[in-house]
C-alpha cells in the first residue's frame, strides 16, 4: 500500500513532451479571444515542468535521508514559500504583512502536520520524509489559498466598509465591535473553497493524492482513508492559518486607541 514500488505505468519522455501539447488549447483560446494570457501561460507551463522535474529529483534524494533537522528545515522552507506566495496574490500591503503570513502559515501547518505524523498516521520515524513532505505540501497548498483569500477580503472589506467602521468607532464602539463584521466575513470567505471541496469530494472530484495512490495500485478503500485524514488536516490548518493572518492584520490595521489605520495600507499595481 505504500506508493514507492511502481504499480503504475511509466510515462516515457516522448509522451511527456506530447502532453505539453495540451497547453496549446489554452494558447489558441487566448489568441482567439485576445486574453493576453499567452505569455503567462507559457511562463507558468515552463515553471510547472521545471519545478516538478526538480522536485522529483529532490524527493528521490530526500527520501533516502534519515536526518530530522534537514527534513524539518526543508519543511520550513516550503512553509516560507507558501507564506510569501499567499501575500503576493493580494491587492494591498502593509508593513509586516509577509511576517504575519509566514507566522500564520507556519504555526498552522506545524501544528496540524505535527499532530498527523505523531498521532494520526504515525510513520516511523515521525519525520519519515515519504510521509511528512507530501502531507505538509498538501496542507500548505490549501492554507496558502485560504490565507490569500482571507487577507485580501479583509483589507478590501476594511476599505470599502471604512465609513461604517468609523461611524461605529465614533459612536463609542471598540475596535473589535467596529470591525468584527469585516473579520467574520473575511474568515468565512476564506473557508468557502475548503468547505465546497469537502462537500463534493469523491462526487465531482477525485483528489490528487487519492488518484495517485490508486494509480500506484493501492486499494481504493485504503486510499480513501488517507484522503479523509488529509482533508481534515487541510480544513483545520486552513482555519487556523486564516484565523491567524486575519487576526494579525486586524491588529495591524487598527490601533490600541481604537482607530482604523488604513493609512498603513498601500495598494500594489500588478498584473496577473
Amino acid at each position: 500500500m505504500t506508493p514507492t514500488s511502481s504499480g503504475a505505468l511509466t510515462i516515457s519522455d516522448g509522451r511527456l513532451a506530447l502532453s505539453a501539447l495540451l497547453i496549446l488549447v489554452n494558447v489558441a483560446l487566448s489568441a482567439a479571444l485576445r486574453l493576453g494570457l499567452a505569455r503567462s501561460l507559457l511562463v507558468a507551463s515552463v515553471r510547472m515542468v521545471v519545478q516538478l522535474l526538480l522536485v522529483g529529483f529532490v524527493l528521490e534524494w530526500l527520501f533516502r535521508q534519515d536526518n530530522a533537522p534537514l527534513i524539518v528545515l526543508l519543511g520550513a522552507a516550503m512553509a516560507m514559500i507558501a507564506g510569501v506566495s499567499a501575500v503576493q496574490r493580494t491587492r494591498r500591503r502593509f508593513a509586516g504583512i509577509y511576517l504575519n503570513s509566514l507566522l500564520s502559515v507556519m504555526a498552522a501547518a506545524a501544528l496540524v502536520t505535527g499532530l498527523a505524523v505523531t498521532g494520526l498516521i504515525q510513520p516511523q520515524p515521525w519525520y519519515n520524509p515519504q510521509y511528512l513532505i507530501p502531507l505538509l505540501g498538501m496542507v500548505l497548498g490549501n492554507t496558502l489559498n485560504g490565507i490569500s483569500l482571507g487577507l485580501d477580503r479583509f483589507m478590501e472589506g476594511l476599505r470599502s466598509g471604512r465609513d461604517r467602521v468609523e461611524t461605529a468607532l465614533a459612536l463609542g464602539a471598540t475596535r473589535w465591535e467596529a470591525c468584527q463584521e469585516v473579520v467574520r466575513d473575511a474568515i468565512r470567505v476564506a473557508m468557502i473553497p475548503t468547505i465546497n471541496s469537502m462537500m463534493v469530494m469523491g462526487l465531482v472530484s477525485l483528489p490528487g493524492m487519492m488518484t495517485g495512490q490508486i494509480l500506484q495500485g493501492a486499494a481504493p478503500a485504503a486510499a480513501v482513508r488517507y484522503q479523509i485524514v488529509i482533508l481534515f488536516m487541510i480544513a483545520s490548518a486552513t482555519a487556523l492559518g486564516v484565523f491567524g493572518v486575519v487576526g494579525l492584520a486586524y491588529r495591524r490595521l487598527t490601533s490600541a486607541d481604537h482607530q482604523l489605520r488604513l493609512d498603513r495600507l498601500t495598494s500594489v499595481s500588478k498584473q496577473g
Binding site: 465614533a170 459612536l171 464602539a173 471598540t174 481604537h258
Partner: peptide, 9 residues
C-alpha cells in the same frame, strides 16, 4: 478611547 468618543462625538 471608546468612552472619549461617546463624550466627544
Amino acid at each position: 478611547l471608546p468612552r472619549w468618543r461617546s463624550l466627544v462625538l
